[in-house]
Amino acid sequence: MDIELSVIDAGSAVIRCNGRLNMVAAPALKVGIEKLVSEGQARLVVDLADISFIDSSGLGSLIAGLKKARQAGGNLRIAEASEQVLTVLRLTNLDRVLHPYPSVEEASHGW
């Protein structure tokens, strides 16, 4: 999995990743999010458009990131999740705290 971090403005950033977000890739995403938050980017959008698959480790990395961002006064949102990701979010009730946005654009407003 590749991770690309783009700073949008003071305090906001988009994290774009691709491939399978499983126990191999999850630690790198968690570290990437922690790095952004520690550098002052606490309003984060994770673009999942190119994530074909997520497992419980991947969910764990998103939840860890959500908590970090909120502790720093921000939030973490997800955008463009695939059907598999949406199903797993719903089955685990995580869609209640990680509301899926249809696009990065829509997720990036109204913090």
């Binding site: 497992d55 764990g60 939840i63 959500l66 685990t92 009730n93 209640r96 705290v97």
Partner: peptide
């Protein structure tokens, strides 16, 4: 399912 803020414990349940 664990609390939504839990980072683990969902694998077998999924």
């Amino acid at each position: 399912m664990p609390d939504p803020f839990s980072e683990a414990g969902r694998g077998i349940l999924i």
